[in-house]
């Protein structure tokens, strides 16, 4: 984990199934995410991916790369060009900053019509940094506890 490191790109085919499955899994029943007819009536050429799915894909992109011990601290995204069925989104990432075991990654997801998403993810990767928690150290209660911790 070093500043400037580029994450391998992740290509995501934007299928109708992915858009609908993502919307329903995130409990978002807005018609523009599953009903093409109603989406067109609202001025959109087709259904399009909801922001919660984009958020989930961005999170997955980061944890896929940094592995199962990685903990997401912050995900901040902005949407631009919508993800319509038939398109492909390519996620790319660059490590912008490293502080101990925590990195900030700039993420961009581009599709056939532009930038679907731009954002920043802060992720902690326990094994990646020099900082270790000494045995018996207490974990502050308002920070994310390791597995089996307070909660």
């Amino acid at each position: 984990m070093r500043t400037g490191e580029k994450l391998p790109p992740l290509e995501i085919p934007i299928t109708r199934t992915l858009i609908v499955a993502g919307a329903i899994a995130s409990r978002d029943y807005q018609d523009v995410h599953h009903d093409a007819e109603l989406a067109r009536q609202k001025g959109s050429p087709d259904i399009f991916m909801n922001i919660l799915t984009t958020n989930g894909l961005v999170g997955r992109y980061i944890t896929d790369h940094f592995g199962p011990t990685a903990r997401l601290r912050k995900v901040a995204i902005r949407l631009g060009a919508p993800n319509y069925p038939g398109d492909t989104m390519v996620l790319t990432g660059t490590v912008e900053e490293v502080d101990g075991d925590t990195a900030t990654v700039r993420v961009v997801g581009s599709n056939g019509i532009g930038r679907h998403v731009t954002g920043r993810v802060t992720v902690t990767v326990p094994s990646a940094g020099a900082v270790t928690v000494p045995t018996g150290a207490t974990v502050p209660t308002d920070t994310a506890a390791p597995s089996g911790g307070a909660g």
Partner: peptide, 9 residues
């Protein structure tokens, strides 16, 4: 826009 901070799993 969506900006989330995760404090506790």
């Amino acid at each position: 826009d969506c900006e989330q901070e995760y404090v506790r799993p």
